[in-house]
Design a binder for these strands. Structure first.
Length: 1120
RNA sequence: GCCCUGGUGGUGGAAUUGGUAGACACGCAGGACUUAAAAUCCUGUGAGCAGCAAUGUUCGUGCGGGUUCAAGUCCCGCCUGGGGCACCA
């Protein structure tokens, strides 16, 4: 009987379906295993051969675990919201729900063709209202929660509000707005609107502003993907960045936990590395640099610290130009605001010495007005007389230690540079001899009054900073190398930094604006990848906190607004990009590395000593950094800071086909539908908030999504008759995919996203298989959602995927034709070198035979766009296409449909061939050649059971006997069981397939048709080739159960024991001969025997061996 | 640019993790069966050199160095393919 795979596939599928062998129960005495695939987006192109690679792997593993006695959850579903369906709707008018439904039906059929063991009763679809009801619900949990940094957990907002009412936010700074503080009293006095604005700064799902690509011509917001070479992909229209109000998830608060709990996970190091790098934790310091008037011509000439005019005419400013002087206060407004509460607190708890001193100074007792604990610059000195710039400080006894003195020296220096005079007294002096102290203060006041030119420029106390006003007068930078602070030669702000327009001088204005406009058209990636250096001087200067040097402030696209503070201190001698920038713009470079710095390249080595750096000279990098950070903190001009590359996740899309937000706005303040404050009718509070039907998918006004066009949906009336506005954005693709693995556990639940009992039973996904293209995005978001749900008490675990296996991508092998630009002439790839400039055009692989183009078919495609094409053929008279390996996608016309392969070779061949292609985690192009080998193997396997002569019927051709198996046969079987089990456990599926081939080859050679061998062999191959296995299993025993429920065979070591080993014998590491020895032979005996060997003798050539290396069970090496 | 990952015969890949490089397949060549084809089976197949041959011998895992008795595997420096870089999923 012939191996008729098509018939077998069909029969076996029916057999499984009738018996519901894949139905999974949440109630079982067996141990559980959860094996999950990343669910697909059902695209219009259908499933291609790349998708099943991971699915086959997980299916094999799931089946294997089942046979090993586990209750296995192995579900499948669809990530059904997304941009392509909406694009398609825009083009054709077909509703995304309709096309999605159609695509899903096709996907399911394609998946079933391959024989996966999914329990379809657990299918989920993210676009199903019964599913996204819970996506919306989880969103609201995030909206109503905050991250408590003390407990490192998400908590309901109620705990935050309780804390505000008790102590204000002094101990709980708002993420990203740490300077903003209020008291309990103030909190209670805020209006509801103000309170909600504050709460928004804490919510895990919050509103903020962010830039999106905006295309005026299309009237829509575009995805990065839709912007190609700086213009829209559709139509090639210009695009620019536009700020819009968007939802965000505060994933940054979870950054540390996302890093730390990676240790608990069984993921590849590469994957963990990628996640860590994405989160990008780096330790360093934030440092304040105060703006200062530009240096005088004299300062410029003598210091030589400022660049001169270059070819790029960046220093076009003339030296005598009047630069607008910043207005000086004792400190800038921000610092004042930051310090005032602290100063007040200090006033209330004076030390004994301070109390005595204040009694003597207050009320102009010395003739001048003193203030106590009054912020000046970065400090809060004890007593200040603003009239003549005198500061009186009282030090504790600890100021005698050298470290403290050094810190104070810096403080004194900064204040002196600002024009203040500082006198210090110790506690003892004040307490024991206040008269003497006061005399000295009087004397100093007299001296100062006698001085005609009081140089300190502070005039008055500043107003308290209004809430929300940005920091002015100071540039804050983040650096990971505070040790290099004396090497700072210039500052660079991101062009979109909020201070840029404020600090730019009149003469630089035009140039800066031009540069900012240029950058606005550039994507972040372009900016990072750009090798060409560009930038622009703002005309502004800041003052170095330690040296007082005046430092020019530039802007450049290599500094990104979103990272750190959006500003850097540039140290050309220590940073490659800063170095290139300084060289390009001719900015003088300060060398702080001595001989290590050649003048040609920045010193990237961290194992150096800092030189030419005042109090840091001679220190190693880490010592210097510590010292600087200590000084910065003590003097309040900066602080240690841990910075993350990770940004909060943008969570809105100006699109139609996604989950609507269960949010309404009242007076522009967002509320959850069910919040009492907005008083919506009961019916409007219910989830799901269904996506309304639309007939048009055109974007709404002002870049809003299509939902904004539906007035009768957007505007709702509450019970008080007020009109509220709905959120018109929808959620992004990753919303639904961030928690779908939970829904599979309890897919039909109407009252919860999943029953706690179900999540407690299935817990984490034991094995998650998917492509590396999701390495960061999806996995990071899922991890965050799981953590949040765990913290809020809904889950007992806080990591979703215990073990992760990344399948490599199956790439397409694209075919290209080359057109001479502006013509209809196509050049064969063989003679391409004669035509240096050509357009590359993808052609459908189905009209290419190997690499030869079917010219007739080509002329017919695209409605005859190429009907008149001419071809410049190569010598063989053929048109040979170019070949490129790239992602398999519809747009590249390189998609191979698994259905075709299954029809031609059967599902089992397809499954095993995908596995045989190579290691699961390696990317490889799809290539059908070689599939014959796997198919032949299955036929050969079949012939162990049946004579495949077509004329014989099943009974006549049956070969299996009840004969007793030989030692040799048992050895083949058990070695195969061992290898398959080991390979399956470690996902080495390609070598497992090859072991099956070896076993079948060997058994065929032995003409083995014995049930004793073949019965376990059939069970062994079941996970890999379930259809043929089921058929043979039924034929073998007429079993009533399915082989998929049979036990996996067990390897018996007793058949595998070897007592001899053929050793390779090497001379100087090169194998020269083989010699067999018993495994328990003594080393002496082996060495002696080996040396007698003819071949060894020949290579020894009479010389005595220097050394003999014998590794038991491995090899023998003789060193001559 | 940054992060991750790969590079081994004509091709896909294997190599117990430092111990005989090329398992298992594809392809190709030769042969058997057949009127023929398909299917199946057998033999050979990294390259060079020597030899009628058995065989011997040198080279060989992207490139250049290094460590080691021994390197595809470890270290340093390059070249190069692929994936990701936050609105494709």
């Amino acid at each position: 009987m012939e191996f008729n795979f098509n018939e077998i596939d069909k029969q076996i599928k029916d057999f499984w379906q009738q018996r519901e062998v894949y139905k999974v129960s949440n109630d079982s005495a067996k141990p559980k295993a959860y094996v999950l695939d990343m669910f697909p987006y059902p695209s219009g192109a259908g499933l291609h051969v790349g998708h099943p690679l991971g699915y086959v792997a997980s299916d094999i593993f799931a089946r294997y675990k089942k046979m090993k006695g586990f209750n296995v959850l192995h579900p499948m579903g669809f990530d059904a919201f997304g941009l392509p369906a909406e694009q398609y709707a825009l083009e054709t008018g077909q509703h995304p729900a309709v096309t999605t439904e159609k695509n899903i039906a096709r996907y399911k059929q394609q998946l079933d063709n391959i024989g996966f063991c999914y329990d379809w009763s657990r299918e989920v679809r993210t676009s199903d209202p019964q599913y996204y009801k819970w996506t919306q619900w989880i969103f609201l949990q995030l909206f109503k929660s905050w991250f408590n940094r003390k407990t490192q957990k998400a908590e309901p907002l109620t705990t935050l509000i309780a804390s505000f009412e008790q102590t204000g936010n002094r101990d709980i700074p708002a993420p990203g707005n740490e300077h903003f503080s209020f008291s309990a009293e103030e909190w209670k006095n805020y209006s509801e609107q103000e309170q909600r604005t504050i709460l928004m700064q804490y919510r895990l799902a919050y509103l903020d502003h962010a830039e999106v690509w905006w295309c005026e011509a299309l009237g829509t917001v575009l995805a990065n993907d839709e912007v190609v070479n700086g213009v829209s992909e559709r139509g090639g229209h210009p695009v620019e960045k536009k700020k819009m109000r968007q939802w965000f998830l505060r994933i940054t608060e979870f950054a540390d936990r996302l890093i730390d709990s990676l240790d608990k996970l069984d993921w590849s190091d590469a994957m963990k590395e990628m996640q860590k790098n994405w989160i990008g934790k780096s330790e360093g310091a934030e440092i304040l640099f105060y703006l200062t008037p530009s240096p005088s011509p004299a300062e410029r000439e003598t210091s030589g610290e400022v660049g001169v005019k270059t070819a790029n005419s960046v220093f076009t400013q003339t030296f005598n130009e009047e630069v607008e002087q910043p207005k000086y206060y004792t400190t800038n407004r921000q610092t004042w605001h930051d310090h005032l509460p602290k100063a007040k607190a200090m006033r209330h708890q004076p030390t004994e010495a301070e109390r005595i001193m204040w009694q003597e100074l207050r009320g102009k007792k010395l003739g001048v007005k003193f203030r106590r604990q009054h912020p000046v610059r970065y400090f809060i000195p004890d007593f200040v007389c603003l009239q003549n710039g005198l500061i009186v400080e009282i030090d504790g006894g600890y100021h005698n230690n050298p470290e403290q003195q050094e810190k104070d020296a810096v403080r004194t220096k900064i204040l002196s540079e600002a024009g203040y005079t500082i006198i210090r007294f110790s506690n003892d002096e004040v307490i024991k001899n206040i008269t003497d102290v006061l005399n000295r203060i009087r004397k100093t006041i007299e001296d100062l009054n006698g001085r005609s030119d009081t140089t300190h420029s502070d005039v008055a106390r500043p107003d308290i900073l209004p809430r929300g006003e940005e920091r002015r007068g100071v540039i804050e930078v983040f650096t990971t190398r505070p040790d290099t602070i004396f090497g700072v030669d210039f500052m660079v702000l991101a062009p979109e930094h909020e201070l840029v327009s404020a600090i730019t001088t009149a003469s630089q204005k035009a140039e800066v604006e031009q540069y900012v406009a240029y950058v606005k058209s550039r994507s972040e990636r372009e900016r990072m990848a750009e090798k060409k250096i560009s930038g622009c001087f703002t005309g502004a200067y800041v003052q170095h906190p330690f040296s007082g040097k005046k430092i020019p402030v530039w802007i450049s696209e290599y500094v990104l607004a979103g990272y750190g503070t959006g500003a850097i201190m540039a140290v050309p001698s220590g940073d490659e990009r800063d170095h290139a920038f300084a060289k390009y713009f001719n900015i003088p470079i300060t060398n702080i590395f001595g001989e290590k710095y050649s003048g040609e390249a920045a010193v990237s080595d961290n194992n150096v000593r800092i030189e030419n750096s005042d109090f840091l000279s001679g220190l190693a990098v880490t010592e210097a950094a510590e010292k600087v950070m200590g000084l910065l903190e003590y003097n309040e001009i900066g602080h240690r800071k841990i910075n993350y590359k990770l940004r909060d996740a943008g969570f809105s899309r100006q699109r139609y086909w996604g989950e609507p937000f269960p949010i309404v706005y009242q007076n522009d303040i967002p509320y959850a539908l069910d919040e009492a404050a907005v008083n919506l009718p009961e019916a409007l509070q219910q989830l799901p908030l269904e996506l309304p039907h639309v007939d048009q998918y055109k974007p709404g006004p002002e870049g809003e999504g299509p939902l904004a066009n539906i007035d009768n949906w957007v505007y709702v009336k509450n019970n008080d008759g007020e009109t509220l506005k709905r959120e018109t954005n929808t959620m992004p693709g990753y919303a639904g995919s961030s928690w779908y693995f939970l829904r599979y556990m309890d897919p039909g639940n109407e009252t919860e996203f999943a029953d706690k009992k179900a999540t407690d039973y299935w817990k984490q996904v034991d094995l998650y298989i998917g492509g590396t293209e999701h390495a960061v995005g999806h996995l990071l978001y899922s991890r965050m959602w799981t953590k949040a749900l765990h913290d809020l008490g809904y889950l007992s675990f806080d990591e979703p995927f215990k073990r992760l296996l990344n399948q490599g991508m199956i790439q397409g092998s694209s075919r290209l034709v080359y057109r001479i630009p502006g013509t209809q002439k196509f050049v064969s790839s063989g003679i391409l070198k004669n035509y240096p400039v050509v357009d590359k055009i993808h052609v459908d692989i189905h009209i290419v035979n190997g690499v030869e183009l079917d010219i007739k078919a080509f002329k017919k495609i695209k409605n005859g766009e190429y009907a008149n094409a001419e071809f410049i053929l190569d010598d063989g008279g053929k048109y040979i296409c170019g070949v490129e390996t790239e992602k398999m996608s519809k747009s590249k016309y390189n998609v191979v449909n698994p259905d075709d392969i299954v029809a031609q070779y059967g599902a089992d061949t397809f499954r095993m061939y995908e596995m045989f292609l190579g290691p699961i985690d390696i990317s490889k192009p799809w290539d059908t050649k070689g599939i014959e080998g796997v198919h032949r193997f299955l036929k050969k396997f079949w012939r162990l059971f049946y004579n495949d002569n077509q004329e014989l019927n099943a009974k006549e051709s049956w070969l299996v006997t009840a004969e007793k198996a030989t030692e040799a046969e048992l050895k083949i079987l058990h070695k195969t069981i061992k290898k398959i089990e080991g390979d399956t456990e470690k996902f080495s599926f390609n070598t497992a397939v090859s072991q099956f081939m070896i076993a079948v080859n060997e058994l065929s050679d032995l003409k083995c048709h014995k049930q004793e061998i073949l019965d376990p062999l059939v069970r062994l191959i079941t996970p890999y080739a379930p259809h043929i296995a089921e058929h043979l299993w039924q034929a073998l025993g007429g079993y009533t159960s399915s082989v998929t429920q049979a036990p996996f065979p067990v390897c018996e070591e007793k058949y595998l024991i070897e007592n001899r080993k053929v050793y390779p014998v090497a001379i100087n590491g090169k194998a020269r001969t083989n010699m067999a020895f018993s495994l328990d032979a003594a080393q002496d005996f082996i060495e002696a025997t080996v040396l007698k060997d003819d071949v060894v003798q020949k290579w020894l050539d009479g010389k005595a061996p220097k050394k003999i290396i014998f590794v038991k069970g491995k090899m023998i090496n003789i060193v001559v």
